[in-house]
Design a binder for these strands. Structure first.
Length: 563
DNA sequence: GCCGTTTTCGGCCCGACTGTTTTCAGTCG
């Protein structure tokens, strides 16, 4: 049972209680618990089975601990089942309709007693909603449209999919009248692996002119809201974009607020309040006097802490560490000295080894590893492959190519290539590329056995997840990380934008265990060498510093450090 | 429902915009 499953139960519980009109602080308590459970690096199921005290976790008190135990032991939560039975099936989907919240949904249900969502859609079309107190024609239309939209698919974008839109909007807004600064904030600035919308913060002397200009962006499909200082639009492809425009002197405070995460901002505001400040999107205040507002660093500094980079702003311990002025010095793209996992046209890459090497040199790297994916049928091919790399190494000066391979971990934990073959490579990655649905126990045993092999160096894309496509394989990470550390095996952060494997949370957990990493583009073409920056962002979200990542080392240092 | 170097009770982040209203509740971020 995953933490996500447990968190989802509390999220649904909170939503249903909201529709029921429960105490909002109780609802928030469930939401907070869900968020904490979701971002735990270890399995809460295991905690329960080992009899650990759940109330030691933040936001988990006696009541929620009891409920977690119930979920783990019975697979469900009685209280949620009861609540669900009180309302029509699918009622929670109504919450995803823009502009329709819990209070409205409750009024709708109490007035109309609809039994299905389809029934509600029909009532909306028949104009049975507009005369209810608190409703009108506009909301009625939103409900009808919202239900129709929901029946299609929910939209969420990979970071890499949102990126071109972000860049284009940035360029567009820089040409807005009276504009001074534009930053894409929100989850995009925090480099989350997928983003729900784009939040943009701008500074301008006449905000209303910028808002006007913004809503005329060519790709705007419709305008959700438009005021003097803020506006929301939806683009043709369904991506929602929010713009907030402030005065230059307030830019830092606004940027901080709109970068989030929500949990981070709430925690900072609470902390500021306890210290006698007030903080909002216009600045940090003590009484009526403004303490800081122009840039983010000033605000953090006034609160007595290190500047917290956006990628760390998730309320996962960064505030406490920053208050001790002890934040990690996160690595950057410039820290990377080589790319240690590339596929050439010997397996499923489209570029030759020489092309990859030349492109890597042009990027300023001093080494790469070609690690094609080979199985037991490829023995002849491997021979030529090794020779070609050796030949290129004789030609290049000040640049080295490692002879690498990715080998499959079979279902029983044995490897697809013999030790004899594995010995001929400089770097061997093992990877799960099949049997993704084994039980947690079987999957963990499979990895543990593979880790016994003496000729391996690193694990490629550990969880084998594909974002929005395939869930991560189930593993007992605590046990596995102990073994990885003992065997001095490296973990890869795979930069492919639909993988970003391992996750930020696992990365942080592994780092504090003492495990070292490689950040790789896993490029299958020259162009994909540029994916490296996605992996670096992910590593930053996982609190990694240069010293945690072996391909931040120069060639000679790397040679002596490689396991 | 959670939480506590002021507290085991009484707090719990803060403001813009919309659609409904005649001054504001609901929603959102």
């Amino acid at each position: 049972m995953t933490n996500q499953y447990i968190a989802k139960i509390f999220k649904e519980l909170a939503q249903l209680l909201e529709i029921k009109g429960e105490n909002p602080y109780k609802i928030r308590a469930y939401q907070n618990a869900a968020r904490v459970i979701e971002s735990l690096p270890f399995s809460i199921e295991t905690m329960v089975k080992e009899g650990k005290d759940l109330t030691k976790l933040p936001a988990i008190g006696e009541q929620i601990a009891k409920k977690i135990i119930e979920i783990v032991t019975t697979g469900r939560l009685q209280k949620l089942e009861q609540l669900k039975a009180e309302f029509p099936k699918g009622i929670l989907s109504l919450l995803s309709i823009e502009g329709l919240g819990a209070k409205h949904i409750r009024t709708l249900y109490e007035t109309l007693h609809f039994q299905t969502i389809d029934e509600l859609e029909k009532l909306a079309k028949e104009h049975k909603i507009r005369n209810i107190k608190g409703f009108g024609p506009k909301l009625e239309e939103k409900i009808a449209n919202g239900i129709r939209l929901y029946k299609q698919e929910g939209i969420r974008f990979l970071y890499s999919e949102a990126e071109p839109h972000a860049k284009e909007l940035h360029q567009f807004l820089l040409k807005a009248p009276t504009i001074i600064t534009v930053v894409i904030a929100g989850s995009f600035r925090r480099c989350k692996e997928s983003v729900g919308d784009l939040d943009i913060v701008a500074a301008a002397s006449q905000p209303d002119k910028v808002i006007d200009y913004f809503t005329k962006f060519i790709q705007v499909a419709h305008i959700v809201s438009k005021g003097d200082t803020r506006s929301t639009v939806v683009l043709n492809n369904g991506l929602q974009v929010d713009l907030r425009v402030v005065k230059e002197s307030q830019f830092g405070a606004a940027l901080h607020y709109f970068t989030g995460s929500k949990a981070h901002v709430v925690a900072i505001r609470k902390m500021a309040q306890e210290a006698g400040f007030k903080i909002n999107e216009y600045g940090l205040f003590r009484g009526d006097s403004i303490i800081a507002s122009e840039n983010e660093a000033e605000i953090y500094n006034a609160l007595g802490m290190d500047y917290i980079p956006p990628q760390l702003r998730e309320d996962r311990g960064e505030i406490a560490v920053a208050s001790k002025r002890n934040l990690p010095q996160l690595l950057s793209l410039e820290s990377i000295r080589g790319d240690m996992h590339l596929y050439s046209n010997y397996s499923y890459g489209s570029s030759s080894i020489k092309e990859l090497a030349t492109a890597a040199m042009a990027k300023g790297y001093s080494y790469i590893a070609i690690c094609d994916h080979f199985g037991s049928l490829d023995l002849e091919k491997i021979e030529g492959y090794l020779e070609e790399i050796e030949a290129l190494n004789r030609i290049f000066t000040d640049f080295k190519i490692f002879k690498g391979v990715e080998v499959d971990i079979l279902e029983d934990g044995s490897l697809a290539l013999s030790d004899e073959i594995l010995r001929s490579f400089d770097i061997v990655y093992i990877a799960v590329n099949s049997s993704f649905k084994l039980s947690k126990d079987a999957q963990t045993k499979r990895l543990l056995r593979a880790l016994e092999n003496p000729y391996i160096h690193a694990i490629a894309h550990l969880t084998s997840r594909l974002l929005h496509e395939r869930p991560p394989i189930e593993l007992d990470y605590l046990t596995l990380f102990d073994k990885i550390l003992e065997r001095k095996v490296l973990l890869e952060i795979n930069s492919q934008p639909n993988r970003l494997d391992i996750s930020d949370i696992l990365t942080k957990e592994a780092k504090f265990k003492g495990i070292k990493f490689l950040i790789n583009s896993a490029a299958a073409s020259v162009e994909e060498l540029n994916y490296m920056h996605y992996g670096v962002c992910q590593a930053r979200r996982g609190w990694l510093e240069q010293e945690d990542v072996l391909n931040c080392l120069e060639y000679n240092a790397l040679l002596t450090t490689l396991p």
